[in-house]
Design a binder for these strands. Sequence first.
DNA 1: GCAGAGGTAGACAGTTCTGTCTACATTGAA
DNA 2: TTCAATGTAGACAGAACTGTCTACCTCTGC
Lengths: 204, 204
Amino acid sequence: MNLKQTTFISDKPARERILLTAHDLFYRDGIRASGIDRVIAEAGVSKATFYRHFPSKNELIRAFLSYRHERWLSWFKQALQHQGADLGLMSLVPVMEEWFNNPLYRGCAFINTAAEFGDSLPEALELCLSHKQDMVNVIATLLPVNESQMILANAAAVAIDGAIVRAQLESQIIQSKTALTALALILDILNQSSILSSLSKLSK
Amino acid sequence: MNLKQTTFISDKPARERILLTAHDLFYRDGIRASGIDRVIAEAGVSKATFYRHFPSKNELIRAFLSYRHERWLSWFKQALQHQGADLGLMSLVPVMEEWFNNPLYRGCAFINTAAEFGDSLPEALELCLSHKQDMVNVIATLLPVNESQMILANAAAVAIDGAIVRAQLESQIIQSKTALTALALILDILNQSSILSSLSKLSK
DNA sequence: GCAGAGGTAGACAGTTCTGTCTACATTGAA
DNA sequence: TTCAATGTAGACAGAACTGTCTACCTCTGC
């Protein structure tokens, strides 16, 4: 298994191999379910090497979250840029659809981590929150600049989070798109209200 | 610790004590993080007794999810009934607010379980999905009966799920209500579109 | 009065987990 | 050349986890 990854990855330095392997395992199976032994085995690295780079599993978790944040957000921005510029919030629908349809889709790593560790890893909670804040800021760029911009961006983000967890539950089920249609409906009416508020501002 | 619970619970039969204790631990700390030894210690029960009632931890997880489903849904229905009947979807806002403000709030047990066990406990996924389906059906009773009823109920449910995970992230932070304001905004416009569609049906 | 259900107490096996440590190999730069 | 960094291989300790098993107790219904 993971032949593609192994051959692709094997020439990279050990720290990167560990981080990429941990990312895949943590995201797919959950953090607690992925033991250190499994990570080092799949990364093709010795235990001493692992503990040289990451003094504890918690350090690896931190690195995983930070790496995931960067990777997801840059994908998100880029995917949005490929959409038409005048779609407003509706640009989000095909972007989310692309993500949800990825066979490796397992929901939002940050929501999942917050669910897995509650208060027991408080720094994770903070990272999750700042991840969501950055997402809101990106969404805000899709909206006209006015006093309701951030309010609408926040609402859109909450709707997206809802669609994310719904798609996660439905991902096992064949042919299920209720998450996406619900999201599209909400974003559509949010979008209209954003246009309305722009118009009302113009007419003032 | 848990004096109140212990004195309150100690006279109940063992199976119930185990289930209630497991509920509190699983919900608060996560399922994987709560070992059997911990459950039996806090339930004040011997190991043999535990394994007489629940042949394996997975059986306990199943019982936990089913108990949680019943308990949450009956609370949800009852809380909605205490709201004004003519509020439509807006009845959901104070109900969710009450839940989010509970100091024991830790998000939706089903979303959290789905996040913790991915494909590795497939029955859990199904239970989560049917839990959400039941929630949608309750929400639908708040809406006028027409062809868009279920579509709107689904959209409202997705928005609620989004608010649930947001409130979970924000629960640590003092004074944060963005989850609730975003939810209120979405439900408000969904509600308006539901009223509009009722009117348009009447005028047909 | 006795059988069986339900309970306690806790030792035990077997696994898995995190983290440490020893011994040795390779390589690049001072 | 020699030193330090980076790597491999894997034994080991100590804890925690699930699940089994033995031995004994207590109550209730027949």
